[in-house]
Amino acid sequence: MIDLYLVPNNPERTTLVSTVGVAYYQVTTTKSQPFGGPAISRIRKPADTEGESIVAEIHWRRWGAHPIVRSRVFDGSEQELLVKELLYKAGNRFSPTRYFLGNDDEVYRWKIVKGIGSVLSNNSTGTEVARYTQDDIKDGFFKGEKKWYLQIQPSTLSVDMIVTTFMIMEKKRRDRVADHHVVRVSEHDEDPAEGGGAES
């Protein structure tokens, strides 16, 4: 199991650091230009060359254009996909839950779980693969602090793919909360199915 702490807790500009303080991944994001290119997030890990260090690039295009992700994590060769094709919806189109095909040909699901955070699981077996959650840290580099971190279980799914899909999901989740005040309020409300809700 690997625990990776976001320092700082910002999916667009952060370093993912282990319990003993080793940097596993770094995320940087350029600003979009007023009439130029889109903001670009780059996920890097330590490697011998700059090319080998880039895990993924996400181009956050504007004016309604869907963002694009470029990466070799899918099958080892450079690919370019629309984010909505990589992380696709199934069922309720308003749900924030997203699915993707892993490098091991298994389907995985990112879902927000109340009281925990974002949880990644194998869609066919239900086995948890990773979670983004907050806790009081008991030991290691961040002992005594309350921090958000990505906890990754051993699996056949590439850690690069877990980190790439997580970073996209978390940025989009924060964008939704920032854009829609109703989301920020309703996150603390009971689910209408539990509480009845007001119907006229």
Rank of each mutant, 00 (worst) to 15 (best):
A198H: 05
M169Q: 03
A47E: 08
S124K: 15
Q79G: 14
E128I: 11
R174K: 09
L87G: 04
R176P: 00
D75F: 14
A56T: 03
R70G: 13
M161A: 00
G37I: 11
Y108L: 08
F142L: 07
W110F: 11
K143F: 12
G117K: 09
G91Y: 14
S186I: 13
D105R: 14
L16E: 01
D105F: 04
D3N: 15
L4C: 13
V73M: 12
I168H: 00
A65M: 10
H66M: 09
V177F: 02
T127D: 10
V129A: 11
S186H: 07
S186E: 07
P34Q: 03
Y99L: 04
I68N: 01
L6Y: 11
R173W: 06
E199N: 05
F94V: 09
N103M: 05
Y24P: 00
K89I: 07
Q153S: 12
T49Y: 11
F35K: 08
V17H: 01
E128W: 01
R184H: 06
V107F: 13
Y5D: 10
V20L: 08
E12P: 01
R131Q: 06
Y88I: 13
L4K: 04
A56R: 04
E57A: 07
K114S: 04
V55G: 03
P192V: 02
Q153R: 09
V159M: 08
S95I: 07
L157I: 14
Y99K: 09
I112R: 08
Y25T: 03
Q134V: 14
P8S: 06
H59W: 07
I43F: 09
Q26A: 12
D48G: 11
G140A: 07
G117Q: 04
K31D: 04
V27D: 10
L4N: 09
D160G: 06
Y149K: 00
L150W: 04
E128A: 08
E170S: 02
D191I: 05
E78H: 14
D105E: 13
T125K: 13
L82C: 06
R173H: 04
E190Q: 01
D136Y: 11
K31P: 02
L86I: 06
R109L: 09
L157T: 12
S41E: 00
S121N: 14
L4W: 03
D191A: 09
Y99H: 15
I54P: 04
V73P: 09
D135K: 10
P192G: 02
Q79A: 12
F141C: 09
E128V: 11
P96T: 12
K146P: 08
A39R: 00
D139L: 10
D105N: 15
K171Y: 01
Q33T: 06
T30Q: 02
F35L: 07
F74R: 00
H59P: 02
R176Y: 03
G197E: 11
W110R: 04
I58R: 00
K111M: 02
E12Y: 11
N123T: 07
T133V: 12
E50N: 10
T165A: 05
F141A: 13
A193P: 01
F74N: 05
E85Q: 14
K138P: 05
S41M: 10
K84N: 15
I2F: 13
M167A: 12
V17E: 04
I168D: 01
P154N: 15
L4M: 10
E80C: 13
A193M: 08
D191E: 10
T127Q: 12
S18C: 10
Q26F: 05
W148H: 15
Y149G: 03
